[in-house]
Design a protein around this nucleic acid. Structure first.
Length: 261
DNA sequence: ATGGTAGCGCTGCTA
């Protein structure tokens, strides 16, 4: 079972590349972030023609998350489960059961600057994500949270930590909020399969030729529960997808799971 | 060229 995540930075702008990527990589499940679409504009039929059931949670201009699956899509639901969560959620989470695996597509708030209200909202959002796990499932379940976390878990997950003094994505507060999610019972799949590497990076700024200079960050993650970790055979990012005309600024991350024993 | 680029959508916001 191949599960992929990709922040597409506008599905309208990226649809041809997404279709091509699906054709080449044939994921069983593909989750996306930053579709920037309203639900009514989501190209359900395009993906259906490719063999995928889909669910989308978006308002239009900002954010927007989706799940595509050709192995079943049950109990699809957008937003957090707790009451009064709509204001904090902002069309940044959608989930479904795909072939018995609880799959979540998340787009964690950017945080902008450490002294802003948006930074506090980012930390609160990650707190809500932990609460969602506590409320809706157990660590012994098969759970995968994939998406753009906008947090680099370690210093080696950015190209030059000295460039990040006073910046978001690397602060102890953000890393603690991410760790609090992982402490529920999740492992960072890419780090498990690449224990000694720098990165590998999944995002490069469009500006200043950052991609070609290697100025990237590893902020797109696949967090897996222990039963999923036991099935994990590979985790990687597709750097090729960042190349060529009109790329997203993010590369897809893929995990592969063996059949259940 | 003294921030840069991309997307949305039409003015500036978000990343």
């Amino acid at each position: 079972m191949k599960i992929a995540t990709w922040n597409v930075n506008s599905l309208k702008a990226r649809l041809p590349r997404v279709e091509a990527w699906i054709g080449e990589h044939q994921p069983d499940v593909l989750v996306m972030q930053e579709t920037k679409l309203a639900d009514s504009a989501f190209p359900t039929s395009v993906f259906a023609d490719l063999g995928y059931a889909s669910t989308h949670h978006g308002n239009g201009r900002w954010n927007g998350v989706a799940i595509l699956s050709k192995v079943g899509l049950e109990d699809a639901r957008g937003g957090f489960s707790g009451e009064d969560s709509a204001s904090v959620e902002e069309c940044r989470i959608v989930q479904a059961i795909c072939a018995g695996v609880k799959v979540m597509s998340v787009y964690v708030p950017n945080g902008r600057t450490v002294d802003s209200e948006f930074f506090e909202q980012k930390l609160a959002w990650l707190g809500q994500l932990r609460r969602e796990l506590d409320l809706t499932c157990q660590p012994g379940d098969e759970v995968v949270i994939l998406g753009d976390f906008n947090v680099a878990p370690e210093d080696r997950d950015v190209w030059d930590i000295t460039q990040f003094v006073g910046m978001t994505h690397v602060t102890p507060e953000e890393r603690a909020a991410l760790a609090n999610v992982e402490d529920w019972g999740l492992s960072d799949a890419m780090r498990v399969t690449n224990p000694d590497e720098i990165g590998p990076f999944t995002w490069w700024d469009y500006r200043a030729g950052a991609f070609h200079k290697g100025w990237g960050m590893r902020i797109d993650l696949a967090l897996v529960s222990q039963p999923v970790l036991a099935r994990l055979t590979a985790a990687y990012r597709d750097r090729e997808a960042r190349k060529g005309p009109q790329p997203s600024d993010h590369a897809p991350v893929v995990i592969e799971l063996k059949e259940r024993d």
